[in-house]
Each structure stands twice: as C-alpha cells, then as structure tokens.
Amino acid sequence: MKPRILIVDDEPNIVISLEYLMKKEGFEVAVATDGEAALAQAAAFAPDLILLDVMMPKKSGFEVCEALRADPARTGLKIVMLTAKGREGEVAKGLALGADAYITKPFATRDLVLRVKELLA
C-alpha cells in the first residue's frame, strides 16, 4: 500500500509544489489549508505522515501537532513541521511538542523528500 501524506499549508503555491513532489515519489496525497481542516483530514484521510506549516489561520501548526499527539489513535503518525520562522526557540518548541522533524523554509526539495522517505522507512 502506498504511504499517505497530508499536506497542510495556507500558501497555495507551496501546497502545489509539495503536492507535486510527494506525488512524484508515488505517495498518496491530501491537502488542507488551515489548522481545523488539517485535524478533520487527519481523521478522514488517516495519513502516515503530515507536512505541517506553523503559521496558519484558525489553528497554528503547533496547536495541530499538540492535538494529534494527544490522540492515542494517531500513534505512529509522523509529523514534519515546516516554517518560515527559523528561530532556535521555535525549533525547540516544535520538537518538544512531538514533531519528528523540523524544516525551515525555504527548503531544498531533495532534502525534504529524503527526510520524508527516511521517516517512512
């Protein structure tokens, strides 16, 4: 079965690029553009990995991450946080909340893909 990936970002162009990259690697992909939609999709789509933006309307990536980690049904779900805020404090916060990786924007596409594959392996 193909791994399933949920892409969460409020920037349409970034969503397009991530979708293209993930599909090219043969993953099954779903999209959400804000925090609440992300939680809904996580339940409906049951992804193996989430690419999660931090700065989003309604619910921030941190909140989404926290909610997902609190859900016992979602153990084993990998979370990769993406953010344009590259401060040390933010990275630490993301990892403390249970993210598996923290990637700052702008990212190198190859690194991102490698990282995702690594986490799914």
Binding site: E11, F107, R110
Partner: peptide
C-alpha cells in the same frame, strides 16, 4: 521567506 520558498521549490 514565504515567496522565497515557492521560488526555490519550483526552481529545483
């Protein structure tokens, strides 16, 4: 960084 992210991703 946000537009830069798109520019870099699509260029790569």
């Amino acid at each position: 960084r946000t537009p830069l992210t798109s520019i870099r991703a699509f260029s790569e």
